[in-house]
Write a protein that binds this DNA or RNA. Structure first.
Lengths: 125, 125
DNA sequence: CTCTTTTTCAACCGAACGGTTGACCACGCT
DNA sequence: AGCGTGGTCAACCGTTCGGTTGAAAAAGAG
């Protein structure tokens, strides 16, 4: 469990149950039992999910009597957003630049083997 | 392998090697062998990684002789960004609202069991 | 046709994952 | 003290994951 922070966050959100928990915590804090209620898995399973979210820094548990209210730590989202934005921007920029290069180049004077690579902006999944 | 699209994308980016591949593809298209070179794993392993990225819609492979240039499909990032932004905004808004409520409330008139929940904005991991 | 290059497919292996059951700890209540 | 409630720990189980090796498909080069 010594993965880098970014891997932990992405991995934590790769599970639909965990994403749903995050969604519900965005509305307000909740206890483990409250969180577990809607799903047809045991409370222990949900507790494990929360541990994963906590290790990823997405969630924090405070102690309050025997209850352990779970709180969403939204600031960790920035880690992902930064990573994503960086490469999306980079790719889009390259896309635009390559487009220009191809436009300003006669069809039969292309770099050796490589074809124009139409990089079709096709169906969104 | 019938997971929902969002899970596939998050899961695909949960691996550091795969994230690195995406980072390098943002610079420009590349073949499997080129991509595999920097890592000390076999080409087959990288091919598997690419399959995961492709199934997530993050990457597309076109055919060109016996080579299969890999191209980054940046538009899929939006799926994640939308999800993240939605709940981050929601959580931040709630945070602000709750703050107001607590500020406008005398210390000993609190809803039954629940304490103020200091929701400390702790270390950003 | 044969040889080489690039990539994938198939089977296998150990580690991690999501889930279960059962025991346990911590606390409030009476 | 004794009980009930909320939560976690520990062991186990089947499946998935990242990796390997070995063979094969697909296409160009001799």
């Amino acid at each position: 469990m010594a993965a880098d922070p970014l891997s932990r966050v992405f991995s934590a959100l790769a599970d639909p149950t965990r994403r749903d928990i995050v969604a519900r915590l965005a509305v307000g804090d909740a206890t483990v039992n409250e969180l577990a209620a809607p799903y047809d898995v045991t409370v222990q399973a949900v507790s494990k999910h929360l541990k994963v979210l906590e290790d990823a820094g997405l969630v924090s548990r405070s102690r309050e009597a025997q209850r352990r209210p779970v709180h969403l730590e939204a600031n960790v989202f920035d880690l992902m957003t930064k990573w994503i934005e960086r490469y999306r921007r980079q790719a889009e920029e390259r896309y635009r630049r390559l487009d220009d290069v191809l436009r300003s180049m006669p069809d039969d004077v292309r770099p050796d083997g490589r074809s124009p690579t139409p990089h079709q902006e096709g169906q969104p999944t």
